[in-house]
Simulated scan of single mutants.
Amino acid sequence: MTLDAAVLVRQITELQAEAVVRWHVLDGRQHPLDNPYTGLLSVACQQHQFNYQLWHEEDVARRRDVTDERIAQVKRAIDGFNQQRNDWIERIDETLIGSLGAWGVEPVEGARLNTETPGSAVDRLSIMSLRVFHLEEELSRDGVDRAHVEKVRTKLARCEEQAADLAHSLTELLEDIFAGRKLLKVYRQMKMYNDPTLNPYLNGAARKAG
C-alpha cells in the first residue's frame, strides 16, 4: 500500500473496472471470482465481489418467470451478500487504520472527522463500476432503437462524471487522512436483520407478541 492517495485511488478504481469485466467473462465457470491482489487492494477486491454478487441476485429478484421459492432463495442470498458487503466496508477502514499506525501517522491538533469513510466511498465506486459496465452492455445490445441508445449514453456520461468526482473526493480525503488533517474511525453498520438476538422475527419475539 502506498501513501500516495492519487495512486491508491487509481489502483482501486482500475481494479474494480478490470475485475467486473473479468468476472463476467468467467461467469459460470469454476471459481469465477478471483482475487489476485494483496494488502488493501485484496480487501477492496473482496468487498467488490460481494457487490458483484449482490448486483446479480438483485437482477434475479425482479424476474417474473421464476418460482416464489426461487425468489425466496434469492432474497436470502441478497441479505447475506449485503451483510458481507457492509462488513467488508468496515474491513477497508480497519486496514487503512492499521496502515496509518504502521506508518506513524497521527492526527494533528484540531483534526476533524469526515461524514463518509474511505471504505464507504470505495463501496460507492464499486457499485458505480458495475453500473458503468452494464450500461456499456446496453449500448451494444441487439434489437434496441436509437432512442434507447441515446438514453443509455446520457446515463453513462452522468455515471462516468459521478465516478470521476467521487474518485477525486476520495483522493482528497485520503490526502487529509495521510497528513493527519482528518480522523479515521470505523463506524460499525450494526445491521439488525441478520442477527437472531436483535431481529424479533428470528428470535420468536414477534410471534409471541402476536
Rank of each mutant, 00 (worst) to 15 (best):
E18S: 08
V9S: 02
C45R: 14
Q49Y: 10
R141K: 06
A111S: 08
A44H: 05
L15D: 10
A61K: 10
Q53A: 13
H56M: 06
R64Q: 11
V152H: 03
E106S: 12
I127W: 15
G110E: 01
S99I: 03
W23S: 13
K182Q: 08
V108A: 06
M128A: 11
I177G: 09
G101L: 09
Y193P: 11
E109T: 14
R63H: 07
E172P: 00
A44V: 09
A121T: 02
P200T: 12
R62D: 09
K191I: 10
V66N: 06
D27N: 14
R181I: 04
I177A: 10
Y187F: 03
S126Y: 01
R141Q: 08
R22K: 10
Q16S: 05
M128D: 11
L130W: 09
S120V: 13
Q84L: 14
A17T: 11
V20C: 06
Q49N: 13
V149L: 05
S99F: 07
H48Q: 14
L3K: 03
A209N: 03
T38I: 03
S120Y: 02
E172F: 00
D142G: 02
S129A: 11
G110V: 06
R63W: 00
R141N: 03
R141I: 05
A44K: 08
V122N: 07
E137Q: 11
R158S: 15
A167S: 02
D123F: 08
D145F: 00
H48W: 02
S140P: 05
A77K: 07
Y201V: 12
G80S: 13
E172K: 08
D4Y: 06
V7W: 13
S140N: 11
Y201C: 12
V74P: 01
D176Y: 08
A164G: 02
D176I: 00
L96V: 01
E150F: 01
Y201E: 13
H31M: 10
Q73H: 09
K155V: 08
Q162A: 08
I97G: 14
V186F: 08
Q189C: 08
T197S: 15
G39K: 11
V20K: 03
M192V: 13
L174W: 01
S42N: 10
W88S: 10
H24T: 14
L15C: 08
Q46D: 15
V74Q: 01
T171E: 08
G204F: 01
L40I: 07
I71C: 01
L3P: 02
A167V: 00
V66G: 09
T117V: 00
C45G: 12
D142N: 04
D142P: 05
C159G: 09
E160G: 05
L41T: 03
